[in-house]
Nucleic acid binder design. Sequence first.
DNA 1: CAAAAATAGCAACATTGTTGCAAATAATTG
DNA 2: CAATTATTTGCAACAATGTTGCTATTTTTG
Lengths: 138, 138
Amino acid sequence: MSNIQNILRNNKLSVTEGRKKILQLFLNTEGALAHSDIEMGAGENFDRVTIYRTLHSFVEKGIIHVIPSADNSIKYALCKDECSEGHHHDHHVHLVCSVCQKTLCLDEVVVPVVNFPTGYYIENIEVVANGICKQCNS
Amino acid sequence: MSNIQNILRNNKLSVTEGRKKILQLFLNTEGALAHSDIEMGAGENFDRVTIYRTLHSFVEKGIIHVIPSADNSIKYALCKDECSEGHHHDHHVHLVCSVCQKTLCLDEVVVPVVNFPTGYYIENIEVVANGICKQCNS
DNA sequence: CAAAAATAGCAACATTGTTGCAAATAATTG
DNA sequence: CAATTATTTGCAACAATGTTGCTATTTTTG
Ligand SMILES: [Mn+2]
Ligand SMILES: [Mn+2]
Ligand SMILES: [Zn+2]
Ligand SMILES: [Zn+2]
């Protein structure tokens, strides 16, 4: 039985063509994907609404996570840690490469500890770096 | 002569009603503003296009900076450091409060040093924390 | 104040995101 | 396996957001 089916099943999602194709795309892709990337890459005829809904449920289930952006083009990437329904644990840093334009999960770079003044309650921290990736910087 | 006019003049921007009103709004507001906040808050009849263009030039000049978001609703906030044309130096952390929904610049919380593997070139780092602000957490 | 330069508003359009509903598909049950 | 039930899909219609070219208006300059 395929890995893809397992992932969907384990997350109590029914196995549909759309979900398989989109998940496939994430598994085949290095770096993060924007909605538009999926619209283009995930085969031929997928309704945009289906993609929106699929991405939402994948995020909800902890299959993918959202990477914030400063230009209204949020990206999505596979969760590699043990994320589960409603509980993400992706404590890594992201890099947006200004050369190849890819957004990468740097799984080995852990989000640093930040000291906040007393009074604040911090739930989670997102770190997005802009720079040049290893590939492009040589 | 008003502070607002000075800021615009110093940045070689001609002083127009739109720019004055929008800059006024930033000066009067604690926390960051979304485009839609400005559309509502900045008086009555402003063409949306003018607001887009104003925000763009303010960012370009280093009068305001962009705060990334995970839900395609980027926010803008006044620069308090010495930012200038094409060179932002806002090395502070941002907080999105899940109670009051405000996005705050925590000027006193400096972006921590992050160690990247060799091979990467890092230009700047954005840190956005989700949590509860001092006001709401009491 | 007049001329030159910059900006604002308008229109038209493109892209992105949301919702309700009926048809199609997938899961479950006997 | 077939029938029933549950879930998902595509469609349509719409709302919100963002972009561009052009002209009229405003601002700056001299
Ligand atoms: Mn990631
Ligand atoms: Mn800030
Ligand atoms: Zn690169
Ligand atoms: Zn708050």
